[in-house]
């Protein structure tokens, strides 16, 4: 069974990863290119199964919470009823059904938008308490932030049109330069980890062996 648990997944990773990688960068024989295309298509299908797996896992976790009467366990009933009920509704009546649309537009959408918009309140409070010019670096960061905020909205332009020009300069030069450095660093890290997975050196995804 050890072969099934470790060797087979490693060799699948080596085989699939190498072919997709080669097909991306090198002109390779037609049949190898076709394998790469198949792997990509299979991955899309697997992702759909992963959604089902995620839903099953969510159900299992919340069923356990209810059974063991953990803190706030009663809310798990809401999660389970919403998950099963809305899925059944979607499967039976499709997303154009008035009841499906009503729940999406009047429950899910406002709740989701509310969670996102609460950021405005948190940011405002955090800026007031934490955004201090304690040293030179913090002062530069604070000044850039204020200029970009003013240069991004009409009131900044009304106060002084130069805020807009300064914002574009900050975004195009210092910001782009710093972000490029970070992106290149992150990309090199991703390449390193990906190659380790493809060569079978990284085994964390197999359960930490």
């Amino acid at each position: 069974m050890k072969i099934l648990r470790s060797s087979v997944p490693i060799w699948l990773g080596v085989f699939g990863g190498s072919i997709v990688l080669l097909a991306m960068f090198i002109k390779i024989p037609v049949h190898v290119g076709l394998w790469s295309k198949w792997f990509l298509e299979w991955r899309v299908i697997l992702a759909s199964f992963a959604l089902t797996l995620g839903a099953g896992n969510l159900l299992r976790i919340h069923a356990n919470r209810i059974r063991m009467k953990r803190e706030a366990w009663m809310y798990s009933y809401v999660t389970i009823v919403a998950l099963i009920g809305y899925t059944v509704l979607g499967i039976l009546f499709k997303r154009t059904h008035p009841v499906y649309s009503f729940i999406f537009d009047n429950a899910y959408s406002p709740l989701s938008a509310t969670v996102f918009s609460i950021n405005a309140f948190y940011i405002s409070s955090a800026c007031y308490r934490a955004f201090r010019a304690r040293n030179g670096h913090a002062a530069v960061l604070l000044l850039s932030g204020v200029i970009v905020m003013l240069g991004s909205v009409g009131i900044g332009y009304a106060i002084w049109p130069g805020f807009n020009t300064m914002t574009q300069w900050i975004m195009n030069y210092p910001n782009s330069a710093a972000m490029r450095g970070m992106n290149i660093g992150a990309a090199l890290g991703i390449i390193g980890v990906s190659l380790r997975v493809i060569f079978g050196l990284e085994r964390g995804h197999l359960g930490g062996e």
């Binding site: 405002s124 800026c127 007031y128 955004f131 201090r132 604070l142 932030g145 905020m149 003013l150 009131i155």
Partner: peptide
């Protein structure tokens, strides 16, 4: 509304500092 929101955040930063 977004302009006023930005102005308020800038005011809070300045007042805090």
């Amino acid at each position: 509304a977004q302009s006023m929101g930005h102005l308020w955040v800038i005011f809070t930063i300045l007042a805090g500092n």
